[in-house]
């Protein structure tokens, strides 16, 4: 019945389509942050899991002929450094970037934002409010989840570099070594570092799915926006 009505209406208003405005939402540093982070994150999760549960891919008569596990760990450390400094760039951009990149987005606790949290849950989880007027940038639930990922970033950086510090002569990882005595030894640090890995695995699954879902639902270029930066906002009538 509804769909019939819609068809009638669309015919009735042919020639008067809704007007959309192009908005440059994700600036280049935000997009580059996103993709560098995506590559590093997948690399870190994959190699991190292997470091915890290594598999043997090949064999050799002597240990010196292979460096497979060493390479896995090298990739992990490489990604870790890139991801850490990439994260710092993003924090900087939170202070100088546009309104969608601003750090305040990630603390969605104003009355309007709290209301949007309910709206997004209605849209995403309950599927009862399918065409809510959600924020053009990050919606409030996404912001909240990103805030959690930032906390997880910080935890992984601190615990990761603390674990790394015992095999590094460089001053940088030693900045994080204080966490080891605080947590009562490296066993605990390693455990927490490993546990948070699974937070990222779950985050990646949900994040990728919901991006596609919102692209489909909102129809304003969610997926392409993280490549080109542009989104579309419906003009006010």
């Amino acid at each position: 019945m509804r769909s019939q009505m819609a068809t009638t209406q669309s015919t009735a208003h042919a020639g008067h389509p809704a007007e959309y405005r192009r908005v440059y939402v994700w600036e280049f540093p935000v997009r580059s942050y996103h993709w560098i982070n995506a590559v590093c994150m997948v690399g870190l999760c994959g190699t991190g899991y292997l470091i915890g549960a290594p598999i043997r891919i090949t064999t050799a008569p002597e240990a010196w002929q292979l460096y497979w596990f060493g390479s896995i760990r090298f990739v992990h450390f490489l990604c870790a450094f890139v991801y850490f400094f990439n994260f710092l760039v993003r924090i900087y951009w939170g202070f100088v970037g546009n309104e969608y990149a601003n750090w305040k987005n990630f603390f969605p606790f104003t009355a309007a934002q709290r209301k949007e949290i309910v709206d997004v849950i209605k849209t995403d989880v309950l599927q009862v409010k399918l065409h809510g007027n959600l924020s053009l940038g990050h919606n409030s639930v996404a912001s909240l989840v990103y805030l959690m990922t930032f906390v997880a970033f910080a935890v992984q950086s601190i615990t990761g570099f603390a674990l790394y510090s015992s095999m590094s002569a460089s001053w940088f990882p030693h900045l994080f070594h204080w966490i080891v005595p605080l947590m009562g030894g490296e066993m605990n640090v390693r455990y927490v570092h490993h546990l948070v890995l699974w937070f990222f695995v779950v985050f990646i699954i949900v994040h990728v799915y919901l991006s596609f879902y919102h692209d489909y639902l909102e129809g304003r270029g969610t997926i392409s926006s993280i490549v080109g930066g542009w989104k579309f906002e419906r003009e006010k009538q």
Binding site: A6, S10, H13, P17, A18, L130, H131, Y209, L217
Partner: peptide, 25 residues
Amino acid sequence: VAAHAVMTNVRKKKIISEVHEDDQP
């Protein structure tokens, strides 16, 4: 996520019609 995707597709007609309706001036 898979269940959600299935649900979304089951209710596809409703979603499209609502969105479409809303898109009209």
